[in-house]
Design a protein around this nucleic acid. Structure first.
Lengths: 224, 224
DNA sequence: TAAATAGTGTCTATTAGACAGTATACC
DNA sequence: GGTATACTGTCTAATAGACACTATTTA
């Protein structure tokens, strides 16, 4: 006799990261209804019946940021399904991690929030979103080491110093500008030089680079 | 007006890896019913209504291998939910990756299968299990670099040569025994020496080691 | 000019890779 | 002894980290 198959509500939740003014920010929404009314939460929503999971994630990302579907980097993070994670009932959420450069100010109740205070206070976010955010930030930190992902936080053309600030911001460390420059420009395919230069406020203008074709860094750029 | 919430069947599928006779094997079951009747598939099953996802994975792992719940290493791999991935209807599967040392011969239709032919033929496995297996093997390969995970493929006491064979098998490369020995024993907490030695068939007996407390390797052990 | 930032060169300690040589078992 | 495997030591090329120096802009 066939055992009845349980069915579950499934959502996608998004950890959308960006670097603004040398601080790592995440997109949060303020909950308008219980549970956790008035509390900040990660944006997300239910998966539609015939919708692929990446499509649901892309749709939510577009809806929340107003950006086109191909903007930035998007990857699956992990799936969270503790029976008690949503007081309204069993909800399984597939979390995605997005990295954006220069996103617009979001509409509605969404806003960019510095990750620091959110990570320090496990109760700052609704549901188990503190755990999801922690996992997302740790994934981003780890991937900077062995991938060219950091360039996803930069606009299409950027300086080596801008790229270095990304690393310093996400890792919370300081890197030697000269060694960093040597390492990045010496890794084939990481960045490609353009003919353009910044019109600097002060100091010598810096050369602008674009993202190169390489996706993985070998050998990696290790954090201390 | 509230939009109706779609509900989905959710399964856990397992990529259970082990190394037998210097070949990477995965546990497969032969499907007894359509779809894909007679085809090999990854073991898995439906998540119960109030069951946490890790508990479902542990339960399936136990059921398939007969091993206790705390045996080996188990981590979440990724979630697959393409609308067409199961011809019977929409099923979302949360895949887990398990690494075992010296598992028993499984009961029923389950068996250990070499990963090589399965990876070479995208149609050898049912559903989208080729993709899941590929992702699992790649995850294992990548994690050997920067974690002490390789020791999970070894019995409680093992020689450095056994550990090296694990790396060579999973990566498909050859490693210099002397440099490997130096690197492994020189990384604090990776392995701890015991007083025991192997009673060798031939050659000098090797010292036996246990898994050390370290989980991450810094600096990593890079594959070429 | 001074100040500020960009970019290059050089030295050194560490590490990876190659491999010679020694140790200890079984036959 | 011969052979096989375990383990240690040494050399070298490459790399990471530290930092001096030059280049090019604004004020």
């Amino acid at each position: 006799m066939p055992e009845p198959v349980a069915k579950f509500a499934v959502t996608v939740d998004l950890v959308i990261l960006t670097v603004q003014r040398d601080v790592l920010h995440v997109l949060t929404v303020t909950r308008a209804v219980p549970p956790f009314e008035g509390r900040a939460a990660l944006p997300g929503g239910f998966v539609h019946p015939d919708e692929p999971l990446p499509a649901a994630a892309t749709r939510e990302l577009s809806d929340e940021t107003g950006l086109p579907h191909d903007a930035g980097h998007l990857e699956q993070l992990a799936t969270y399904g503790e029976p008690g994670r949503d007081p309204r009932g069993r909800v399984i959420t597939v979390a995605y991690l997005a990295l954006l450069a220069d996103p617009p100010q979001p509409a509605g109740s969404a806003d960019w929030t510095a990750t620091g205070p959110l990570l320090a206070d496990p109760a700052a976010l609704a549901f188990d979103h503190h755990r999801i955010l922690s996992d997302g930030v740790e994934r981003a930190r780890a991937k900077l080491e062995y991938s060219s992902l950091a360039a996803q936080f930069c606009p299409p053309e950027f300086t080596i110093a801008q790229l270095r600030r990304i690393y310093e911001t996400v890792w919370g460390t300081r890197l030697d500008p000269r060694n960093f420059h040597r390492k990045v420009t010496g890794t084939p395919g990481f960045v490609v030089a353009t003919d353009h230069h910044t019109s600097s406020d002060r100091g010598r203008p810096a050369r602008l680079y674009r993202r190169g074709p390489a996706t993985s860094l070998h050998p990696p750029l290790l954090r201390r």
